[in-house]
Nucleic acid binder design. Structure first.
Lengths: 347, 347
DNA sequence: CTGAAAGCGCTTACAG
DNA sequence: CTGAAAGCGCTTACAG
């Protein structure tokens, strides 16, 4: 027989420490261990036993098993956020806001779908099989949220078309779009274009629709062929703009609204390559007001949408629901505001 | 009493359908239901009962409860990916590769940490309390992976410093860095700079170290003050470059290597704003070869790193481990390759 | 304050 | 092929 290889991973994985082991170690029952481990011991466990159990927990390195606990309780302490598009920079900030509010009581897990896709019904059921304490659904398409019928608290985020019985936290993108159109009108533009995001979410639809409606109302034209869409990627947007600009120029278009700042970055980039002067030949504005928008060249006019606050508010609402408190307001809408910068300045 | 409001959410949430309910409905035992529901009925359940159970499952809308199942089995079908930085565009492609391989048997969940932070030990333990079938750890810092000691299969991704007993899938960024330096040398550059990422991961460290070493070997200088770092954000990189360029120019620097393409985009952007001609005054190269790099102006020379393949390989390795197959190769390294474009072309 | 016991929903030897 | 039963690790009335 050969000597065991000391560098090989040990073959006996560390045995899971259970409440029963802690109980034995401390000379108490598992009920007592449970109470102490979950911080519910006040007035129910003697000081002496609390100390003993704490020591045993430390000695053995015990951690409450999430699975056993979830089964007994009927629900886990996990909050699942379903998201169709994590590569959007907006998303990272949204998550940060959610995490701020969730703290360590709940555990945030992300279920990502393929870009632009809502999860299928089967996938969602499996998610629910994890017994999450709550669900956060980002930019769901309306069909999905309709058929969800989740038996757990749900808050939709960035879902202006969420049905009345589904709590939602939204950004007032319609007002933002109107502000953008009004800004263009004020600067004297007569013909405008719109570069949309390709994913069919309500928030993107609202931006486009409100922009078009406001433009018409303000006496500006959005000619046939002046609305186009591509993914939320700088490169895609640049290529798309390159493709459409010749026609837009022919049409006499002098301003373009963009569904996201990322789209606008692509336009700025390509405009420079094609020697289109911004804002002299073309005014450009976006949505999001990402940090970088302040320092593009020229700086980008944008509708400021507070992603972090959006995340914070959504998480707060969800906690209310989970903890059984009624919501003061089932649909919350956060205002955006137009930040005027060089990409739209009057000549 | 007032009539019930038909638009209000129903107050009795749909009762969870259990295997026992299905069993009763089909006139069999729960053991049989379990076998059929998990596709393990071949040769163990009569054709007749299989059909009955399937019908009952469909009738009642039964879905196997993940929590109960996990507890009985000792492990869930969840795979948790721990990631410090989801806003990197590279990451979305990595995820896509992982998802391709995981299919529907396993459920991928992301545990995100604050940007640049590895999860704490307590957080990780809670993650393990979910009894994941396996863990994928992206760009871990060495301390974290050392103290993990997970009782589940783990594969580290993009972790060149993973200890020998932790399976890892890496990109050969050191070779990429050497290729980049050699490319600069071949073009006649004598003094170079390096724009690094600020997060202290091994992959970023390797890029920088290998670049510096190769530069020295090839007779190029990387002067004092010619290495600086910032977050993986275009805007940050642009600002950083603006800050350092005056000094770099004084030093006679004519080429800058960037830790990621995103950094390089920032440099390109700012260079144009500052009327620094690329590549005439300054050659620029990055890592990642993101899709957009082919269409920047000028197009960006970059080390192509295949994020999707990285994800696919990591997921394949993890599945091997989970399914009890030994790994043919515990550490896999995928080669990158230099893509030469206009941002470094000889004058 | 304490512990024995039931129960959460499932899976898997086991005996038939 | 089939079902009764044990067991996964925990929580929570309940009786004391």
């Amino acid at each position: 027989m050969s000597a065991p290889d000391p560098t090989a991973p040990s073959t006996t994985p560390p045995r899971r420490v259970t409440a029963a082991m802690v109980a034995q170690h401390a000379g108490v029952s598992t009920a007592t261990v449970s109470l102490v481990a979950n911080g519910k011991s006040a007035g129910r466990v003697s000081e002496r036993n609390v100390i003993r159990v704490r020591e045993a927990i430390a000695d053995l390195g015990y951690v409450v098993d999430g699975i056993g606990s979830s089964l007994a309780r009927g629900v886990s302490s996990t909050i699942i956020m379903v998201a169709p598009d994590i590569s959007n920079p907006f998303f990272a900030r949204l998550i940060a806001g959610v995490r701020q509010v969730l703290g360590s009581e709940y555990q945030l897990l992300l279920a990502v779908t393929d870009p632009g896709q809502a999860p299928g019904i089967a996938e969602t059921r499996r998610l629910l099989g994890l017994r999450p304490a709550g669900l956060l659904i980002d930019a769901p398409n309306p069909r999905f949220i309709g058929e969800l019928g989740a038996p757990v608290p749900v808050v939709a985020v960035d879902a202006p078309d969420a049905p009345g019985n589904v709590p939602a936290v939204n950004l007032d993108v319609a007002q933002g779009a109107r502000d953008m159109a009004a800004h263009f009108a004020r600067l004297g533009h007569r013909k405008v274009a719109y570069l949309d995001a390709i994913n069919d979410t309500a928030t993107m639809r609202q931006r486009r629709t409100a922009f078009a409606a406001a433009a018409a109302e303000l006496g500006m034209q959005l000619p046939e062929g002046a609305v186009t869409s591509c993914t939320i990627e700088l490169g895609q947007a640049a290529r798309h703009f390159a493709l459409h600009w010749p026609r837009w120029r022919e049409l006499g278009i002098t301003a373009v609204g963009c569904a996201t700042d990322t789209h606008a970055y692509g336009v700025l980039q390509e405009a420079r390559a094609a020697a289109v002067r911004v804002p002299e030949d073309l005014a450009v504005a976006g949505f999001d007001d990402l940090p970088y928008s302040a320092t593009t060249n020229p700086p980008l006019t944008s509708i400021n949408l507070d992603a972090t606050e959006l995340g914070r508010t959504a998480a707060t609402q969800l906690r209310q629901l989970i903890e059984g408190h009624p919501l003061e307001q089932s649909h919350v809408t956060l205002a955006g505001r137009l930040i005027e910068r060089g990409s739209t300045l009057r000549l």
